[in-house]
């Protein structure tokens, strides 16, 4: 947890607070998020009851492009892509089907994709396949769902360019109340809700 610049858990019950600090550390570590989150503040009030998590993240690494997935070679009227990294292959194939259509795409073996009978647009190698920031935020919100107490089914979550917040309760809370709490929590870590 030393990788985070700031990490706080606030709750008026000391023992509960310490347990939730431990839970947060375990969950972020399990989801490989400790190197991504820079600031995290969790506020829990079991009397209301409410669970609020606000934080900021580092640059998650940006886009994964075709050139990151494999090398592109043209042979006659076919383009052969030799896959180096399979991690995003499923998403990559989906993108290819969208752009070129199923009839022009073939995968003869696990590490080879062939595009045939269609012209490849210029700058194809720089085409964005996945934006890593989307996945990181999704993972982060999932991790917050795991950390939050059981039964807090009424949730509100949001993420922007480098900020996120997650609010959960078992009661429906008016929007302005949630907003005030979130703004207040961001202020505690020296940030402004954008």
């Amino acid at each position: 947890m030393t990788m985070m610049d700031q990490f706080e858990v606030e709750c008026f019950e000391e023992i509960g607070r310490d347990f939730y600090r431990q839970i947060t550390e375990t969950v972020l570590l399990d989801h490989n998020l400790t190197s991504v989150v820079t600031k995290l503040r969790i506020f829990i009030d079991p009397r209301l009851p409410i669970f609020v998590a606000v934080g900021t993240i580092r640059d998650a690494g940006g886009s994964i492009r075709v050139s990151d997935i494999g090398s592109v070679q043209t042979q006659g009227d076919s383009t052969i892509i030799s896959i180096r990294d399979e991690t995003h292959l499923a998403k990559f194939l989906t993108r290819l089907y969208e752009i070129f259509g199923h009839e022009h795409i073939d995968q003869p073996d696990r590490f080879t994709v062939v595009i045939s009978g269609i012209e490849i647009p210029k700058g194809f190698e720089q085409l964005e396949v996945v934006n890593r920031a989307d996945t990181v935020f999704r993972d982060l919100i999932y991790a917050m769902t795991v950390i939050a107490p059981e039964g807090f089914k009424v949730r509100r979550e949001s993420y922007g360019r480098d900020q996120f917040f997650y609010v959960a309760s078992e009661n429906t809370l008016p929007e302005h109340v949630v907003e005030d709490i979130v703004v207040g929590q961001f202020a505690q870590i020296g940030e402004e809700l954008r």
Partner: peptide
């Protein structure tokens, strides 16, 4: 639960709850 000899209630972290 009543069909058992004993029940262990594993509850959470907050006294209030």
């Amino acid at each position: 639960i009543n069909e058992h000899d004993l029940a262990i209630y594993v509850l959470g972290n907050f006294e209030t709850c």
